[in-house]
Design a protein around this nucleic acid. Sequence first.
DNA 1: ACCTGAACACCGTTCAAGT
DNA 2: ACCTGAACACCGTTCAAGT
Lengths: 240, 240
Amino acid sequence: MATTPQQADGPARQRGPRTRSRASHSLESVLAGAVEILDESGAQGLTIRALATRLGGGVASVYWYVSGRDELLDLAADSVLGGVLEATADVGGEDPIEDLHTIALAMFDAIVDRPWLGAYALRDTTSQIHSLQLYERIGEHVMRLGLTPRQAFHATSAVVGYVIGTAADLGQEPPAAVVSGKVSREQYMAEATAQWRALDAAEFPFIHHILDEFDGHDDRDQFLGGLDLLLTGLRLQAKR
Amino acid sequence: MATTPQQADGPARQRGPRTRSRASHSLESVLAGAVEILDESGAQGLTIRALATRLGGGVASVYWYVSGRDELLDLAADSVLGGVLEATADVGGEDPIEDLHTIALAMFDAIVDRPWLGAYALRDTTSQIHSLQLYERIGEHVMRLGLTPRQAFHATSAVVGYVIGTAADLGQEPPAAVVSGKVSREQYMAEATAQWRALDAAEFPFIHHILDEFDGHDDRDQFLGGLDLLLTGLRLQAKR
DNA sequence: ACCTGAACACCGTTCAAGT
DNA sequence: ACCTGAACACCGTTCAAGT
């Protein structure tokens, strides 16, 4: 496995116009370029060639900083998680559960903002240092509940699993519209709702039961509803 | 969007040896072939060319049954979920929470068995009919708790989100070993544990707190620990 | 209605060579 | 130490043509 340099160089800005024939990068600028492309066109749009073009250099230079496309995705995701880490650094009130709520919501918002994040966040803590730190931070708040190490381990993993699972699902783009942009998210949701409404009520009683809730629902409310269940269970476990 | 034929043809077996110059498929056989390849070599290994070769035909014939690789993955995942659907058809005891526990565990086991499932299960209910039916089934058990439609909607989504999120994460292969098979899962876990142990205890108190639990832990126990928290919260909500 | 082979327009990754 | 261009070995998808 290639050792990826973790030093924090300043961004490699080109001072003059493109008089220089040789481009110069840094891990930071490579990841920043990757995140830009990911934000614009998703994981599918992040090709090594597209990245090299954006950086104004050749394809092979990317491989100096990153062992391959997979690591590029992992590190790009982890660099964004650095922002979540900073934003939640000061979280710490009287109630640990409330703090967990705050951190989980911050993670959720970050992933909804960047749907591509869901698939690569907190995937490999050996290479994703911010992911590890975020896991640690959540765990530290869980620790305050006075559970056994085993319970704390499970609870922390559960919170992370729920956040990533839910956010990845909700942040997901409708299958067809990803590249073409033919169908907006609203259109897709309206289509899905219509299709649900057309289902046989005898065969799908539950779907019909929640139809009005599903129609025009807010993803964030849905996330918070489930998070409350999880944290309520955790609170109860802490009291025992 | 291409309308995918959903009729249930018998498997198109070749009776004689390869005397026939023209291969004959069906949606079923195409998906069965896809699942075989996915089981053997993961999502990365499922190329249209590899599938065509396995089916003994040309590349383009796959496109008669499926609109593209994405839909192939979605339908392959959904076909496997049909098995989970059958396996949990009889679930239904006195306690709805217990039934939810049973179904969630069945889903978890299916995904751990087939790590590629996590990324494609329950992704698009407009094309994945078994996913929709599974969502419906979970919802029906939630309905028995007597919640409001809104609560039932959130609870069902939370259970699904937790299961998929956790299973996808745990079932994930270590980054390097996917193709090469150089590093076994055990080796990778041992390596990760060693790396955690080497972390500064002052900077990572939580990691050190749970180290012994993490070392040699069982994924299933971890999953069940979090599931219990979620279902406990749900049980409490039902009582209010 | 369903299958085929060939072609098109891409990919990720490597490598010898440059600076 | 870091960057380059070209080459290699693949991809998914399409299409005119077959049966």
